[in-house]
């Protein structure tokens, strides 16, 4: 195993995701050691996109499991296709097949609905398994997930044990709405993604919006960086920066100082709550624009 993160960093940049050194190293270790990676950070710093970019670099599938409260084994592992099972049982009523034969048939893989976790371990090539917002699921699911992540096998009572054909690369993300258990943290590698600095954000913006005017790109990034230092309820993330830049381009704005009214109106791409919109009135926008233009 070679632990050089720079090639991976280059590859990720090529598919349009620009990681800093710490994140590139974390991904490199996660792939090299085949350990789950827990990513934390504010909403909108691109945690979910990491998994997408990694899947693109490794040229493999991305399987996503979105967590929510009450998520349980049925929704994440497998479910039997009851309607089909019932139909099959009815259809066999006339055949006078022995009960065991019917049972064998309706509890075969054909009648199995695969959910993300089962799907992830039955791929021929290791996929990237994204377990998104793990903090939304409850403690029981966390414990259950730990078991899956350590054994990579699933037992279905009617079918037997399914052993992983390949071990997925697991990426977990958390927004910190709930404290995760220490057991889960210890099993995972950890990386914290911060809001990008000016240089990195500019690179991201250029990668995602290649047609953007150079002057505008610089202004947009500096404006958002300044805005993040204001006291806001919901700090704008990278996704918001990209949206806003797209909106400004759509409005045919070349420079932020060009049309204050349009810029003010377009701020709704960055500020997502009423309180935040009120916290950045025209004067504040003018002050920020004056500083970055």
């Amino acid at each position: 195993m070679k632990l050089d993160y720079q090639p991976l960093q280059r590859d990720l940049t090529e598919v349009g995701y620009i990681p800093d050194d710490a994140l590139a190293m974390a991904l490199c270790l996660a792939v090299g050691l085949h350990r789950p990676l827990l990513l934390e950070g504010e909403a909108g710093v691109g945690k979910t996109d990491v998994a997408k970019a990694l899947a693109a670099v490794l040229k493999t599938n991305l399987i996503r499991l979105q967590c929510y409260e009450g998520l349980d084994a049925t929704a994440t592992l497998y479910e039997w296709n009851y309607q089909r099972q019932l139909l099959a049982i009815r259809a066999h009523e006339r055949d006078a097949l022995p009960a065991e034969a019917v049972e064998r048939q309706v509890f075969s893989e054909d009648y199995l609905l695969r959910r993300p976790l089962l799907e992830a371990i039955s791929q021929p090539v290791s996929p990237v398994l994204l377990i998104d917002e793990i903090d939304r699921a409850d403690e029981e699911f966390e414990a259950f997930l730990l078991e899956i992540l350590s054994d990579f096998q699933i037992t279905i009572p009617e079918l037997g044990t399914i052993v992983a054909r390949s071990i997925p690369y697991v990426i977990l993300t958390s927004n910190g709405t709930r404290a995760l258990s220490d057991a889960l943290r210890r099993r995972c590698l950890y990386s914290y993604i911060d809001f990008p600095d000016e240089r990195k954000e500019l690179a991201i913006l250029r990668a995602r919006q290649p047609r953007i005017d150079g002057q505008l790109a610089g202004q947009v990034v500096r404006f958002v960086q300044a805005l993040r230092r204001e006291d806001l309820e919901k700090t704008p993330g990278i996704a918001e920066t990209l949206d806003w830049a797209g909106a400004l381009m759509g409005l045919d704005i070349r420079s932020l100082a060009q049309d204050p009214a349009a810029v003010q109106a377009s701020l709704l791409c960055l500020l997502k709550t009423e309180a935040d919109l009120k916290a950045v009135p025209r004067e504040v926008t003018a002050r920020l624009v004056g500083r970055v233009a």
């Binding site: 050194d21 710490a22 190293m25 270790l29 990676l37 950890y190 990386s191």
Partner: peptide, 9 residues
């Protein structure tokens, strides 16, 4: 960076 990833929780 490697140690940080492996040891920070």
């Amino acid at each position: 960076l490697g140690l940080k990833t492996m040891l920070a929780g």
